[in-house]
Design a protein around this nucleic acid. Structure first.
Lengths: 338, 338
DNA sequence: CACAATTGTGAGAGCGCTTCCACATTGAAC
DNA sequence: GTTCAATGTGGAAGCGCTCTCACAATTGTG
């Protein structure tokens, strides 16, 4: 009951329960091979002493820490605005909680800070890692493979077949989104792509090119944004400046699309009549734009859960040897902008 | 160099360096009382073996874990939309990183899940805790005090003088915001308050009452929102329904204010000419509403950093005995809605 | 030149826990 | 009644590290 100084140890529990430390340990850890009466006495002792096992001592011998890192290698500003991260965290946490594992969040700003993250991982402070969204050349995948830490990426990583990952089929998503514009009769279709150091952005742009090629349409109208609303605004402005006659835009994220919609409204273009727009993500933003955004759904929470499940399999050794990949088909969500 | 199976231990480092384990340990831990040559040999050995200390073993003897929990006891949906959490995380992480501490994120959904969080904390998996935004009756403050874990709250906790916290003066903030409306000549001023189980919401409402009382204005027009945009929308609708003649609204958060602005636009009211609006938070949302929102700034990142600094003092014993509180004065930010 | 103070070092005792092993007990099988 | 497995139990060996303590080697002081 007293909480100051030196918490009760397993020895004390054993003494109070009148059993050996070994038996007490077994009783506490789901123990098989413990008589009902012993277990009962141990339980009582635990309760009356307020005993809680010392995780350091335990993990010293079990070689497990029962915690998992979520690594978010992202420049600060995006974390604030993008619903992506929060949802990823939620999906992972939900899965971990169900397995009595703790989530350790690593906010890995690139550069010198990144070294800190790598160091932490090397120390085997965690049993595994989920990497949320990573950029080219951050070396994370390589490092994780090198130290042999179980890990899963949410979103296709660069140099991708060495690690397990879960992703939406972004090429197909980009293609479908663009096709929607083609099918409604648009002929001058531009795109606002994401930063070219992220696979999701590259893949969606690739999909756009595929659809444009299939429809025999020109592919000059490309602008790059940074997945933020402000970035989308700037990109839209640039795009419309260069191609004032666009009648359709495929945007690589809803947040950017929201920015683009604002520019379209400002410049007196009606959506979708003058310019049709398709976004990407459908994480809550798309429902709130005006008009509500037609978009491609990324089931982030589900992806995160799936990824975490794969990680758990790696951690308990039940996963097959190589790197696995799970590709989820995209779903187009029709609202009012296309 | 090999990474599979059994990492190198301190013993091996010592052997390779030709010193005792004790000396190796000293050399590695900023050691005083180690000759330059010994230190050099140990450093070389560490490098060549790729040695990293085992944190479990270390914390077993030092009784420190070098990690700090951030507890976010919040229903899921808010975490996604509110910039508050991301910024808090960033402030805390920045401070922890500077002190070589790790951030362990505890997403504590209430109820059964809450028990998991409490259990984790009892286990002394962390050296301290920062609690981000807490609700009445979650018992967190009591529990933390009971187990004697160093902790700091960001935002005034319920039953507040038992734990250290950092907060903006929300009463003053609510008062100033309302006064702004009074001073510009509004006489029929309503408010959209936050949920009454959060101190920030209660305090801001209190400030509103103070300002209204001082100006001798009626205080019937109160609606309650949940700090989300959708909640603000609903509350605004209700408020205008009951009091169609309002000429000013003090809203307890920018997100809710954004919802309210939309309702005002929909119902054909001009802002600020017909109805003036003041928000609260200024975390990026306020700049993007149309028109841009006059609001009260909460310097969240700074608060989080301050809180973390206080926590660190508690952890290293340099803090004074009792519970401390830091109250930051609010700053009104004028834009176009009032 | 004797003595004390300082510095660097290694032996060894734990930190609190899990788990292997050996040793009773017991009950079933023949 | 003997033989064997199954079942509980405790002793004891670590897990990898830090840190106290005793001791040797060095330096400084009178």
């Amino acid at each position: 009951m007293t909480s100051v100084n030196s918490l009760p140890t397993l020895d004390e529990v054993a003494r109070v329960a009148g059993v050996s430390r070994a038996t007490a340990s077994r009783a506490i850890n789901g123990g098989s091979r413990v008589s009902a009466s012993a277990r009962q006495r141990v339980d009582d002792a635990v309760r009356s002493l307020g005993y809680v096992p010392n995780p350091a001592a335990r993990s010293l011998v079990t070689r497990r820490t029962d915690s998992v890192a979520v690594i978010v290698p992202e420049p600060d500003d995006r974390i604030f605005s993008d619903p992506f991260f929060a949802r990823t965290l939620r999906g992972v946490d939900r899965m971990l909680a169900a397995n009595d594992l703790q989530l350790v969040l690593l906010l890995a700003t690139p550069g010198a800070e990144g070294a800190r993250t790598l160091r932490y991982l090397s120390h085997r402070h965690v049993d595994g890692a989920v990497v949320a969204s990573h950029h080219r050349n951050d070396g994370l995948a390589d490092h994780l493979v090198a130290i042999g830490l179980p890990c899963v990426f949410v979103g296709r990583p660069w140099g991708g077949d060495r690690v397990t990952y879960v992703d939406v089929d972004n090429v197909a998503g980009g293609r479908e989104a663009t096709k929607l514009l083609v099918d409604r009769g648009c002929t001058r279709i531009g795109t606002i792509a994401g930063p070219s150091d992220m696979t999701a952005a590259v893949d969606r742009l690739h999909g756009w090119h595929e659809a444009m090629g299939a429809a025999d349409l020109p592919t000059e109208a490309v602008a790059i944004g940074d997945f933020t609303e402000a970035g989308g605004e700037a990109a839209a402005r640039e795009l419309l400046d260069r191609h004032p006659d666009l009648d359709g835009i495929a945007v690589a994220s809803d947040l950017m699309a929201a920015g683009a919609l604002r520019v379209l409204a400002e410049t007196g273009r009606r959506v979708p009549d003058d310019v049709a727009v398709v976004g990407y993500d459908d994480l809550g933003v798309a429902e709130r734009t005006s008009p509500p955004l037609t978009t491609v759904r990324q089931p982030i929470v589900e992806m995160a859960e799936r990824a975490t499940r794969l990680l758990l399999e790696q951690m308990d050794g039940s996963a097959p040897a190589g790197a696995m990949r799970v590709i989820i088909p995209p779903v187009v969500v029709r609202r009012d902008t296309a």
